[in-house]
Computed example of a mutant assay.
Amino acid sequence: MDNSKWYKRMNWFRNIFSTGRMKLTLYVALVLWAAVLTQIGVNRLFHEEIRITEAFIKSDTDHMESTLEMIGEYKKGEMTEEEKKAVINTIADAIGLKVDNDYTGWSDEERSELLVYKQAKQASTQIKLVSIKEGNTNKNYITIQLSLSNSIQNIDQYKKIVEDVLGTLDVKDEQVILKYEGSREGELSSEEKQELAENLIAELQGNVALKYDEGDLYTVYGYTGMLKEYISSMGNKINIQVVITYNEVNNRTRIVLATPILNESW
């Protein structure tokens, strides 16, 4: 039950009972229950994100990597370079990234970008602020891409950290993509690809919505009620995508699990 319903019930109870002590006791109790239910919702959401990571680990792949991609709209209007750096530094500080004044950027009449990119042994991070001129005003967007190798479980923690810091920056229309990828040696048969994709979706308590088999490219879209975000396509709700591709040069099969869908072409 959402908090608005609880507050409506609070008002209803307050109107019925006339005793001041009774009204105060009921009001406090209901506020506490609303807080408890809110925390349960947060814990459930975090647990569901962990389930996605656990599901991919069960796919038994090598060279696993997880990627967090986020984009959202920042405040409108002109921004100086120092203001843009301050926003980037706020995000970098939150995730423990040392910037060292390593900014790069470019601009033209319609668009400008300022970014920081860091590559470590088992992680890569890019934080970018993009300004686009629309009529008489500028729209500013923040994009973040964070990739982790091997310790893919930590991506869930970074997602929560980034969501919190974007909340403090009052970022609007935030979109989030979680992507997990790994590989197996050799080529999978059509039956093996189908079984692998369906097992991944089943681990997330989901159902297959659409599937496409193009030989070296096998794609499955699914939906699970575990995740609140979804898109609609051909009358289907979709918030899981599984892509399986084969590279005959290195004789390896690449497996990708994404929520809600990938933002890249294949």
Rank of each mutant, 00 (worst) to 15 (best):
G182M: 10
I152F: 06
V176A: 05
S147Y: 10
V176P: 01
Y158S: 08
D156Y: 00
L146H: 15
D164C: 00
S189C: 05
S189R: 05
V176Q: 03
Q157L: 07
I152C: 04
E181S: 11
Q157C: 04
E163Q: 08
K160V: 14
S189H: 13
E181C: 02
I152N: 06
E187S: 12
R184S: 02
D170V: 05
E185W: 12
S147W: 14
I177W: 01
S189M: 07
K172A: 07
D156V: 15
E187R: 12
Y180V: 07
L178S: 09
I152V: 12
L146A: 04
Y158T: 05
S147C: 13
V171P: 02
N150T: 09
S183T: 09
I152G: 08
Q175M: 05
E163A: 09
E185K: 15
I161G: 10
I177D: 06
E181V: 03
D164F: 00
Q153S: 09
K172L: 10
E181G: 10
V162Y: 03
I152P: 01
L148G: 03
K179I: 14
D173A: 10
K160W: 03
D164T: 04
L188H: 02
V171Q: 02
T168S: 14
I155D: 04
V162G: 10
Y158F: 15
S151Q: 15
K160A: 13
T168E: 15
I152W: 05
E174C: 10
I155W: 05
L169Y: 00
G182D: 04
L169N: 09
Q153H: 13
I177H: 01
Q175D: 05
V165G: 08
K172D: 05
T168W: 00
K179W: 00
L178R: 08
E174L: 14
Y180H: 13
K159V: 06
D164H: 01
S147M: 14
S189V: 11
L169W: 00
K179F: 01
S149T: 06
G167L: 03
S149H: 02
G186I: 11
Y180N: 04
N150G: 01
L178K: 01
L169E: 11
G182Q: 07
V165W: 00
Y180K: 06
V176C: 04
S147N: 08
D173L: 10
S149D: 14
E163N: 12
L178E: 13
L166M: 15
L166G: 07
Y180A: 08
D156Q: 02
Y158R: 02
G186H: 06
G167Y: 00
S147I: 13
Q175A: 06
Y158G: 09
S147E: 14
S183K: 13
G167S: 09
E185H: 12
G186F: 06
E181R: 11
E163L: 10
E187T: 01
G167T: 07
L148P: 03
G186L: 10
S183N: 13
V171M: 09
S149W: 06
D170H: 06
S189E: 13
E185I: 13
V162A: 13
Q153Y: 15
Y158M: 01
D164V: 01
K172G: 01
L148C: 04
G186E: 12
S147V: 12
E181L: 06
V162E: 03
S149Y: 06
Y158D: 02
Q175P: 02
I155L: 09
G167M: 04
I161E: 11
